[in-house]
Write a protein that binds this DNA or RNA. Sequence first.
DNA 1: TGTCATCCCATTGACACCCATGAAATCCCA
DNA 2: TGGGATTTCATGGGTGTCAATGGGATGACA
Lengths: 154, 154
Amino acid sequence: MSVYFGTFENKVDRKGRVSVPAPFRQILATSAFQGIIAFRYQAPEAVEACSLEFMERLDQSVSDFDLFSEAHDDLAFNIFAESHQLPFDGEGRVILPAALLEITGIQEHAAFVGKGPTFQIWEPSALAERKSEARQRAPNLTLRLRRNEPGGAS
Amino acid sequence: MSVYFGTFENKVDRKGRVSVPAPFRQILATSAFQGIIAFRYQAPEAVEACSLEFMERLDQSVSDFDLFSEAHDDLAFNIFAESHQLPFDGEGRVILPAALLEITGIQEHAAFVGKGPTFQIWEPSALAERKSEARQRAPNLTLRLRRNEPGGAS
DNA sequence: TGTCATCCCATTGACACCCATGAAATCCCA
DNA sequence: TGGGATTTCATGGGTGTCAATGGGATGACA
């Protein structure tokens, strides 16, 4: 299992297609569904994206517990209902639906940002703004790792 | 087994037919019954829908427990008795019975909402309202997953 | 015979698939 | 180590196919 990182800015062509960055595609290569699941989540101007499997696990983490519970209902309406299943074309591109273009403000370019187990899609200038905010708020960020088990490259 | 995602709004023609969204039909393609099971459940303005197989599992999960229990009896009266078996026509459409049109208020358009293991059918504006409620009620929904099993793409 | 549901076919618009191009990164070998 | 060859990637565009929709024809049933 891999981790999404890095920022990539790609062009949206006149058909509305964008290339998903190759490194991200490589992580998704083993997925049953060749494409991404994109949905709105918390950050109002960003689109969250992940694999189908991530979504299925998310579903199971709730519905094993209680299928018709309120918790599941909130999850469903906030995430599943707002999700878009975007298949790759032969070249690894997806087309962003109008709804996602609207909430992000994406027109000519889209920025892909790795965020670990998922990644996000932004309008580039909105992302730049968000990044500088983050820098100001945490200038002295320290990284703390748990010591990992012996064996395996780091 | 797959998960129903996304929201799709389709037109109801003058014969009362609506196309079930193609992605949903694809999930249902392996079902023994080519169509959907529709029933009212909890949400007063929504129709819950699923495959025949899901219905059978729902029954078993209760009747394994206790066939003549009050729980099973309630399930029978509330769900099975009010369920409609809606077959697809050649183009993947179903006809919504008058009873379901009435409780949902559906007239010209019907919105299909993926909710994970099932999906719902709403009158579009009623759905929009329900969604904004959900958004307000769960602003801090986390994407945290439970620790997952090894293997599988993320 | 009238009403209703099912089957079949037509239309249109979106998009999935195919191929082409150029740029950049990588590889390979002298 | 330098430079040509090869591969990968992002991008652009044409076209066939499929989904959503509409409507006519056929059959069941009262």
